[in-house]
Design a protein around this nucleic acid. Structure first.
Lengths: 230, 230
DNA sequence: GTCTATAACGAGATAGAC
DNA sequence: GTCTATCTCGTTATAGAC
């Protein structure tokens, strides 16, 4: 019966969500390396073997948490992009960067899961790629839109980098000039360098007014990808 | 007797070094979160309680590994700086950045220990600060030297950032203009963003020719801190 | 004094029989 | 799903060798 099946499916989804939430608690308390199906089961009052009906292995649970984290971050970035759809490209870029930072501050342990040290013995499957690329696609989109408007600042591209830059552009953004695509990948990594340093404590006793500092750094990143009128 | 004391001290140092080396092996195999004194002792054919003569607790062993890693990276950066002492500032900057990347590629697990996810339940004591700041001091030094030469490119400093920028400059490099100190801190974080993304797999299937890509990104970072004739 | 080894604690994980 | 026997862990107390 479709109602019974619907109810079953709903129940299954609720348990799945509860498992993931308990696992996220473990993530915060013990770290991804020590994530254990048994501890999750204990927290839920279940027996460990019951979890295997929802996640065939610890690694599959980890993968689900990783995809959820990437999707949550990606959504935050997309919402920021959409909320700033009327602003000039540079302001939209900064808004998206601030959304990434805001998400990281709100979810430090999930941030560590996806952008921190690799979990020993775990290797992410291809299934994570789609969710993982959402933030990057938002950043690409902001730059792409800017290229439809008035002239942007020119970017340098040394000869030795030309082959790699062409490859990057072809793979990521065929409609962007090679030098823009290259600068974008660098800015992408640098953005997460800023966020990671703040979240992982490297800014302790160094940067005080982190919000202002970050806004300015994001503005400089925007300039680095050419989002500035020439 | 001084010879006997010297021999004892030497033996103690050798055992200490062996413990740390075995612990570094654990770091690579299991990750910092699962570093276990017993496993280290087992690997060395010792009994776990004997380790307490050398490290009063597991956290102290972790701290020693962290300081060693920071010092090793710091030395690599200082060596690079000294080897390029005759080159122009921009080239010296790039050389130092490449040394940081090279060290990370050679010691990925120690890199993860110091720049990756925080170890749950562990909080680094003040003793680590000195070693942790060595790389940053090298970067500051390169920019400082450049400021003694001919005019550098001007850097922007919005009004809202001025108080924080003044604080940063006073703390880190009183002889540098506030905008240079601020740009330096941002470039420092961004440099490790680039290295971390490569080491932690974010560049997989994205950046192919990583050496060339990194050199160009480091060159852009140099421009971002003003290391370019105006 | 300096070290190593034995034994033990309390807490937690794990494997397998039932 | 439950129980139990057997592992791991960090850490401490203690005793004895050099």
């Amino acid at each position: 019966m479709s109602t019974a099946q619907g109810a079953r499916a709903r129940a299954r989804q609720e348990v799945t969500a509860a498992i993931k939430e308990a696992a996220r608690g473990q993530l915060a308390a013990e770290g991804a390396a020590k994530l254990s199906l048994r501890a999750v089961a204990r927290e839920l009052g279940m027996v460990s073997s019951a979890l295997y009906r929802y996640f065939p292995s610890r690694d599959d649970l980890l993968t689900a948490l990783i995809i959820d984290a990437y999707d949550s971050l990606g959504e935050a970035a997309e919402r920021a992009r959409d909320a700033a759809s009327d602003a000039p490209p540079q302001a939209r870029w900064i808004t998206v960067c601030e959304a990434v930072r805001g998400w990281g501050l709100a979810h430090p342990h999930e941030y560590a899961l996806i952008y921190g040290s690799p979990v020993p013995g775990y290797s992410a499957p291809q299934t994570t790629v789609r969710a993982a690329s959402r933030v990057g696609l938002v950043l690409i989109g902001v730059v792409r839109d800017a290229h439809q408007g008035p002239g942007l600042a020119p970017l340098p591209l040394p000869a030795e980098l030309r082959p790699e830059a062409a490859r990057l552009a072809a793979d990521l953004a065929p409609d962007l000039p090679a030098e823009a695509a290259t600068a974008l990948v660098a800015a992408w990594a640098q953005l997460f360098g800023l966020v990671g340093f703040e979240l992982f404590g490297q800014f302790n006793r160094v940067v005080e007014d982190r919000e202002t500092f970050f806004r300015h750094a994001a503005d400089r990143l925007a300039a680095g990808v050419g989002l500035t009128r020439s």
